[in-house]
Design a binder for these strands. Structure first.
Lengths: 142, 142
DNA sequence: ATTTATATTATAATCATTCTAAACTGTTGA
DNA sequence: TCAACAGTTTAGAATGATTATAATATAAAT
């Protein structure tokens, strides 16, 4: 559990003014024991349910993108119509439960290191992401 | 290079009527030596450039989704605003070149088998996808 | 051939996201 | 302390990709 003053310096250090709205969003996102996987919609709902002062949707978009650009959030794209943000910014992979639409973080106990034998382009690798989709037995296999 | 009659039976076998438009789209998508990675927009452009009779955008969307549902195309989501389709429907992974926005298929020579040690949910794995983003050295690492 | 189910089409509708520009707020430094 | 400025928030409009509609056309079945 982080304190408000910690969020303030975190924001200041990355050139973001610690506004009322951003601090509120920090609270929702980072004052947690476990990592948080959310869509913009989830976050907007969470805020409107838990605070009486509303935050404009535009601000929620701006803030999430600013936090992503500053490296405080990672974006995980599941499909063209489902994009999640993840408060866990360490290198890690995901399970995606197609029945519940829930993302689950993996650690090295669950998915081993991906062995890239050959980077055919000769360029620098900027990220490696593994997404394991799971579903109950009755679902189609693919 | 497949023949028209082969597309016709392919479509019939999966319960899709072999219409003029679908056969044209088959030609564009599957009459190739290499696999084809495309966005809906790429495909629409390709069709309008290479044929004089136009195909409605709605039909292009419908057909691509039908082909995906029947397993003739795979969807690869790169980010919330970039979704590609892939004519290579075998299990394989991708490099994504952030400089050129090109997807590149990997084979087992480039990325080894992903070792899933533990499927935490106890559900069936429906797919495993690896996306390796690459960029030139001047890009930010992540 | 006739009928029926399916597909195509242009256009409208939808919906998530981004833009706009006016009002507001945090920060700086006199 | 308090102006002045840059950065931020906001409601609402604009955008743009995708999907829905419903009329027309086509393929398949009888």
């Amino acid at each position: 559990m982080l304190k408000n003053s910690e969020f303030i310096s975190k924001l200041r250090n990355s050139g973001l003014r610690p506004t009322k709205q951003r601090l509120k969003i920090c609270e929702v996102l980072f004052n947690r024991d476990k990592t948080f996987h959310f869509t913009i919609n989830d976050l907007a709902k969470n805020i409107s349910e838990n605070f009486n002062e509303k935050i404009s949707l535009a601000t929620i978009y701006n803030t999430v993108h600013a936090f992503k650009d500053k490296g405080y959030l990672k974006e995980i794209t599941i499909s063209s119509d489902k994009s999640y943000f993840d408060t866990n910014i360490t290198k890690h992979h995901h399970f995606y439960d197609e029945d519940t639409n829930l993302l689950i973080d993996c650690n090295d106990n669950e998915i081993g290191k991906v062995n890239i034998k050959n980077n055919i382009t000769g360029k620098k690798i900027s990220s490696v992401e593994v997404l394991v989709r799971v579903a109950s037995d009755t679902q189609n296999q693919n």
